[in-house]
């Protein structure tokens, strides 16, 4: 069985904004699946349709074989959801937030209490349990929210931009929490992100999105391979020997290679033995960034800007 099956979903807001425009994909059980795309691509909209918060304008969604919207109640029982916006109650303590979540998923009395305490220990929030969430750092809140989404041992955990707005240290901690949970529980994890590095680090499978559509789906390795190969870049004094497919410009020799790290020593040796002096050597791997450019046609940060400009303009118009 697939964890998630999505067929041709379309979402039109207010009969005018087409946020998702015919998206289909499957998510196998037990993997980390990533939706990667710039702001405004429609990631949150897709997630909201999966977690039963939004209705589909067209198309079908099913979670672990339960079809929306008929079996929404079953779906809610087997998913954990961490929204993009902060969802913990800022006026309550960390412990209280967990306790309320535990009770909403049917835990009671002592069992609920013990479970919350165990989760607080696991996430490293034990010391802060009786502090109001308002005083938590961004990373602590994210970890608490993940804890709240885990009280019922969900089969599928869905995280919308789990590290948005976090500093690099907190981001790494949240990654570690997600990985640890996944290894321990073997659940399926779905994340959305607009950080290339995050998708590359966490995901087994990535769908690259732009403006309401999925451009391509694959493993990080496949996606990178589709964008070409890496290369060995040597800065050289003199005339280098021949390499298949290599380019030599302004004293820089670029040799394409499927396995740069392994071939680097032999290339260096060959150039050196030809009598050239090597000034520097480095490896240029293909990144997801390259894959994004190849399949979408623009860099992700350029699209980001474009959509945020559009958003601010829209806001300005509404306020005028």
């Amino acid at each position: 069985m697939k964890a998630i099956e999505i067929r041709d979903i379309v979402k039109v807001y207010n009969k005018s904004v087409k946020a998702v425009d015919g998206v289909s994909f499957d998510v196998d059980e037990g993997i980390v699946f990533g939706l990667l795309g710039p702001n405004g691509a429609g990631k949150t909209t897709i997630i909201k349709m999966i977690v039963t918060l939004l209705s589909m304008t067209q198309g079908h969604v099913s979670v672990l074989g339960h079809a929306r919207p008929k079996e929404d109640y079953f779906i809610r029982n087997c998913i954990g959801y961490v929204p993009q916006d902060v969802s913990s109650d800022a006026a309550l303590t960390g412990y209280e937030n967990l306790l309320i979540s535990a009770k909403l998923y049917g835990h009671r009395g002592r069992a609920a209490k013990e479970m919350c305490e165990a989760i607080l220990h696991q996430l490293g929030l034990w010391e802060a349990r009786d502090r109001i969430v308002k005083t938590y750092s961004g990373g602590m809140i994210r970890k608490l929210e993940i804890g709240q989404a885990m009280v019922h041992d969900p089969k599928v955990l869905i995280l919308d931009e789990p590290t948005i707005g976090l500093d690099p240290v907190a981001r790494k901690q949240v990654w570690a929490s997600i990985r640890e949970l996944k290894d321990r529980t073997k659940m399926t994890v779905i994340i959305t992100t607009h950080y290339m590095e995050e998708a590359d680090q966490l995901c087994d499978m990535i769908a690259i999105m732009s403006i309401g559509k999925i451009a391509v789906i694959g493993t990080p390795t496949e996606l990178k391979a589709s964008a070409g190969t890496g290369s060995i870049v040597l800065e050289i004094k003199g005339t280098p020997p021949e390499f298949p497919g290599a380019r030599f410009e302004n004293g820089v020799l670029t040799i394409p290679s499927d396995d740069c790290a392994r071939e680097l020593p032999s290339c260096v040796a060959k150039v050196a033995s030809s009598g050239c002096e090597i000034l520097s050597a480095r490896i240029k791997e293909v990144t997801l960034e390259d894959a994004f450019v190849k399949h979408v046609g623009t860099r992700i940060d350029e699209m980001d800007q474009w959509s945020s400009v559009r958003k601010t303009r829209k806001l300005a118009r509404r306020m005028a």
Partner: peptide, 14 residues
């Protein structure tokens, strides 16, 4: 708007 309600809405409650 703050995201609190989403948490209640995805819980198995009618």
């Amino acid at each position: 708007d703050s995201g609190n309600l989403a948490k209640l809405l995805v819980a198995p409650a009618s």
